[in-house]
Design a protein around this nucleic acid. Structure first.
Lengths: 115, 115
DNA sequence: ATCGTATATCGCCGATATACGATGGATACC
DNA sequence: GGTATCCATCGTATATCGGCGATATACGAT
């Protein structure tokens, strides 16, 4: 079983890793708040976020970095201010993935397919 | 701003904390895998999971505990074997919450309005 | 050139997460 | 009784996280 069906397993594994990584980026209240704020204001710089959260600038910068590295937030190094904005496509894709996984975990009255 | 709208802020804050906590429970590949397995087999004991993941029994037990504490998995101390099963209501509720939040964050595909 | 602002990064720490083996309790089976 | 199995928990080691202050960098304004 370790020998044959490795392709699918590997792929599933990667998917899980990828999803887990993105969920990890969302698993902190501050980052959820930042994401919501970014969505509300379209795009903003680091200081805007600092002014809204009760966190040091360095901490906010870290959280923003985590969000950017997760791919859910896009970063444009504007001249002086930075520009952070939600990556709608990424977020939408994640929403679908999460929805799919969770739905397959809770619904599925009877005969189901699973991935 | 600190004086008036505290109720909503507190509530939002709690919601965020709660969601972040549940997402944290899902932010590990092993736990995602466990959740999927639990969904597939309806319910199972710890050893079943151990046999399927390449992890020590104690580690699996820990992951199961995290899932149970998050509320997404229910635990019934059967006589000898433990019984773990997905809590469909909880998972469904989380799916809705996540979907709501992410959808409100990703620009809403075809220009509909948020909540 | 100097100052002020905005930002990222570094160094540090306490806290938490992850993994394992070992232990002991409970239950089943002989 | 004795033995095997299942499981949770403890102890331990390591890695990562989350937060902050301090510092470096970049740039506009004076």
């Amino acid at each position: 079983m370790d020998t044959v069906s490795n392709h699918e397993n590997m792929q599933q594994c990667r998917d899980r890793d990828a999803m887990a990584a993105k969920l990890a980026a969302l698993s902190h209240p501050a980052r959820l708040k930042i994401l919501q704020h970014l969505a509300e204001v379209e795009a903003c710089c680091c200081k805007d976020v600092v002014d809204r959260l009760h966190l040091a600038q360095s901490t906010v910068s870290q959280h923003l970095k985590v969000l950017v590295e997760s791919g859910l937030v896009r970063f444009t190094p504007d001249n002086r201010r930075s520009r952070y904005e939600v990556d709608g496509d990424e977020v939408r894709a994640l929403a679908e993935s999460v929805n799919g996984l969770l739905t397959s975990c809770c619904g599925l009255p009877a005969g189901e397919d699973a991935d």
